[in-house]
Computed example of a mutant assay.
Amino acid sequence: MDVDPLLTQARQLWIELAGAPVAFPTRGVAVVASAESSTCPPGWVGIVALGDAAICTVPTDDLVGVVTRACHMLPVAALTDPERLAAVLPVTQVLGPATLAYCDDHSYRPQRRQPIEQLPVHHPDLVDFLASVPAEDAAECGLTDITSAAYVLRAGTAIVAAAGYRHWPRRVAHLSVLTAPSRRGRGLARAVAGAATADSLADGLVPQWRARPAASRRVARALGFRELGAQLSVRVGGSDQTRLGPGSNTTAP
């Protein structure tokens, strides 16, 4: 049986983020207690399904048995469906689900050349662009957290679309994309995200696209990203929510 190298690399990333010894089973789900999990907010349950298997982190040992029994009642594809999971677990809050998609040199689709400019993340023009969009969009896109250059398109002197990526463990490049609301639907997200993706591939990284909106997923597919699974974070019972970790959504075209 051929091994999908992208699936293998994606699983290695999320195993590391789990923060405790765990592995994706051949099929089904593996549950582990991990107070240090970065797959979800602290105190939450984090589920990552990739291919035909999933891993799940829970904040305390006493939840391992409960969550394991609940997860075994569902097929892997349903573990990141909030409604179906809530039917077997006392879910009180939900983050996600988000689709996880990955790209490599073979699947990437180069984009038509456009006058894309590279800027440092703290460049005043990029700061102005983020201030010009709705606050929710600016926070969701994750552009303030990128560790690459920002790849931008302008209309006149104003930036109207930007993309970049943050270096994650296992040489993964986590993409962030944002287009001005009035300019969406014109291929701008695809252009800037394509530039960021090409740059990450040239550096030997594995681009990751994490998204909930259908429009964002369409952009990823147009660039050659393959959807390999999904991620869901849930709060069970009275577990405490604190700040978000890498499980938070950071892709908005």
Rank of each mutant, 00 (worst) to 15 (best):
D2I: 13
V3Q: 13
D4G: 02
D4Y: 03
L6G: 04
Q9M: 14
A10W: 06
L13E: 00
W14R: 01
I15W: 00
E16Q: 12
L17F: 09
A18M: 00
A20P: 11
A20G: 02
T26K: 10
R27F: 11
G28T: 06
V31S: 08
V32I: 11
V32K: 06
A35T: 13
E36H: 15
S38E: 14
T39A: 09
C40P: 06
C40V: 13
P42N: 06
P42V: 05
G43Y: 07
W44V: 15
V45K: 00
V45H: 06
G46I: 08
G46R: 03
I47Q: 03
V48Y: 08
L50P: 12
D52E: 15
A53F: 10
A54P: 07
A54E: 04
I55Y: 05
C56P: 07
D61K: 10
L63E: 11
G65Q: 14
V67H: 00
T68G: 08
R69N: 11
A70H: 04
C71F: 10
H72F: 12
H72R: 15
V76S: 08
T80I: 13
A87N: 09
P97M: 03
A98K: 09
L100E: 10
L100A: 08
D104K: 00
H106N: 12
H106T: 14
S107V: 09
R113I: 15
R113A: 11
Q114N: 08
E117N: 02
Q118W: 05
V121S: 12
V121P: 06
H123N: 09
P124W: 02
P124I: 12
L126F: 00
D128F: 04
F129A: 00
A131P: 11
E140W: 09
L143N: 07
D145A: 14
D145S: 14
V152A: 03
G156A: 04
T157V: 12
A158M: 07
V160M: 07
A161L: 04
A163E: 08
G164K: 06
R166L: 10
R170I: 01
H174S: 12
S182K: 13
R183I: 01
R184E: 03
G187H: 04
A195H: 11
A195S: 13
A196E: 05
T197K: 06
A202S: 13
D203F: 08
G204W: 05
L205Q: 11
L205Y: 10
W209S: 04
W209L: 05
R210W: 07
A214R: 10
R217H: 07
V219C: 02
A220V: 06
R221I: 08
R221K: 11
G224V: 09
L228M: 07
G229W: 00
G229M: 06
A230M: 05
S233T: 13
V234H: 03
V234S: 01
D240P: 10
T242C: 14
S248Y: 10
T251D: 12
A252I: 11
